[in-house]
Design a binder for these strands. Structure first.
Lengths: 339, 339
DNA sequence: CTGAAAGCGCTAACAG
DNA sequence: CTGTTAGCGCTTTCAG
């Protein structure tokens, strides 16, 4: 079966202390002894028991990642990048899905007391950042996709207000005047949708366009089907939009689908902009103009925040607010208007 | 700081044993004592230390999931379902991405000796099942997406040959005669592509159609871009297909994209079938006909296999070969041919 | 440079 | 029903 340090020591005729030194390199070992120990190590196929090591060290080398749902392309991609970045630091990632349920999000934080994880990266939906961080008892937490200034934990996010403003401004520049905002989520507490709405309204105001409540559409979730439903309702309402700024690419793709079914030409009759830069958007018809957050950097910076908190016990350091760059990528879905 | 069993015991004026009993319920405790202990537990916000518990129990309650890449919609969705199913069993899932690299896949199995995980679910690409399972030293392994009969570990998969046959037969029934197979991967060792090719050829043979090597196209990876490249090459080759059976939905969507750009009407000029039923397929233009594997059941059965191996130490049980149901979902991309 | 031994927090066998 | 205690496998202090 599986061999312990003690077994290796017996086989090499040394003490466990020496074997431990060979394995960890924490103290010098005579060349001859080392060779003998190494041979025993190899023969027995020794693997350290992580549980014992963790118990001793008080650290696990595991971090938790909580996303609302993994089947969303955006979160899947982000999770992939985080796992990759963690691996580079020799960390393991356990993933949990909250489905945006307040209880799941709260329970998660309560559970961290179990020390399975050294830290937690969480992308909250239902629960407000304040509520979440108040519960993070013992481990450092990094919040994703937030820009709430009243922070009690590190945050990593793009500048949603600015990005939404740029996306809307781009639509205005292609000659659109009746631009719909698709993706309001007044029931959610994470603030992201609110920030994108603010950017949208800012852009309209700057261009001297009066916001029309009929063009601001609420969704319950952020999938293609929600985008499709909202778009159907928008068209049925008689609001006659000439452009749509969808708060996520998935919503935009749902809207695009409905526009096609309704016989609208894109971008001739209707321009569409999304947010997130998921891969499907690049292969849509036409390819989807979108706000591209630097996801790789989101992952990298989030992990950096965690590393700093976990390995540098400096309790005085105030919460960081990391703003990650983004850019607007213009593709076929926002060509000039045709009348 | 964080409190131990000993602290709670001191506060409640009992021994650690009693506190442990209250926490785990493994032995009866007098009602009065229990109340006192519970109060102490609550006041101190006690959380068991998982590392210590694991060291003691020899089990971690953590299972590993290794997928090639998380940003693939199919794997993302599957991972989500597995995490969900694991949660129902109070298991935690650590996720790793292999990117199909042989070294990553092998290292993963070598590492399992560290006992971070009680079991491993792996979806192999580069490494053959035999190679993989030979390395699984101490923990049970479940293979996903395989149907190799020479098994040394449990497997869970759909019947790829049958499914591919049905997809191809459906195309034949809509009047197609020059059906391309898109997605051969001779460099991979996992056998899935080979099985789908077999099913494709079976269907052609049954219909009395002669296979045309020019219609069988190889890809290096399974993303939209690979499907697009293969489709471009196919059209440029002058092979004049009237249908495409793509081995994954992502490939199919890439092919669809190229078909549109080339001015082909779908399904009039070209019918397209995919495999996997990823969400984007439902919102494509036209919606993509596809083979729908029962992913929820794949997740459920894989976990069941692991649970049986981990909790029922019956070394004699031979490897299971679980075949999960699938169906062909016919959508707009495979209407009747128009000439 | 190497050995002996304490102890991380928890569970369970063994008393009482 | 409850207290005492050994020990899971590892790291590390203290001696030698």
């Amino acid at each position: 079966m599986s061999s312990r340090l003690k077994d290796v020591a017996a086989r090499a005729g040394v003490s466990v202390r020496t074997v431990s030194n060979v394995v960890s390199g924490s103290a010098p070992v005579a060349e001859e002894t080392r060779a003998r120990v190494q041979a025993a190590l190899d023969e027995l196929g020794y693997r350290p028991n992580l549980a014992a090591r963790n118990l001793r060290a008080g650290r696990t080398g595991v971090i938790g990642l909580a996303v609302p749902e993994l089947h969303s392309p955006y979160f899947a991609e982000l999770a992939g990048l985080l796992v990759e970045a963690a691996r580079r630091r020799s960390w393991t990632v356990v993933i949990d899905q909250t489905f945006g349920e307040p209880d799941a999000e709260r329970r998660l934080l309560a559970d961290t007391g179990g020390r399975l994880v050294d830290g937690l990266i969480i992308s909250p939906w239902s629960v407000s950042p304040e509520d979440l961080t108040a519960r993070a008892r013992d481990v450092p937490v990094v919040l994703l996709g937030e820009r709430d200034p009243h922070g009690a934990a590190d945050r990593v996010a793009v500048d949603n207000v600015l990005a939404a403003d740029q996306a809307t401004t781009h639509l205005i520049e292609t000659g659109r005047r009746r631009i719909a905002a698709l993706g309001l989520q007044p029931h959610l507490r994470n603030g992201t949708a609110q920030q994108r709405l603010t950017g949208y309204r800012d852009a309209l105001a700057r261009a001297g366009l009066t916001p029309d409540p009929a063009l601001e559409r609420t969704v319950t979730a952020l999938h293609r089907r929600d985008g499709a439903e909202a778009m159907t309702a928008l068209l049925a309402s008689g609001a006659r939009p000439d452009a749509v700024f969808a708060f996520t690419d998935e919503l935009a793709l749902g809207a695009l689908h409905v526009a096609h079914e309704a016989g609208l030409s894109v971008p001739g009759d209707l321009a569409v902009v999304g947010f997130d830069d998921i891969e499907d958007g690049r292969y849509a018809h036409p390819p989807l103009t979108t706000v591209v957050p630097d996801k790789r950097q989101i992952a990298e910076r989030a992990l950096q925040c965690l590393a700093d908190r976990v390995y540098s016990p400096a309790p005085g350091v105030p919460p960081l607010d990391v703003v990650v760059p983004h850019r607007l990528e213009i593709r076929g879905s926002t060509g000039p208007a045709v009348r």
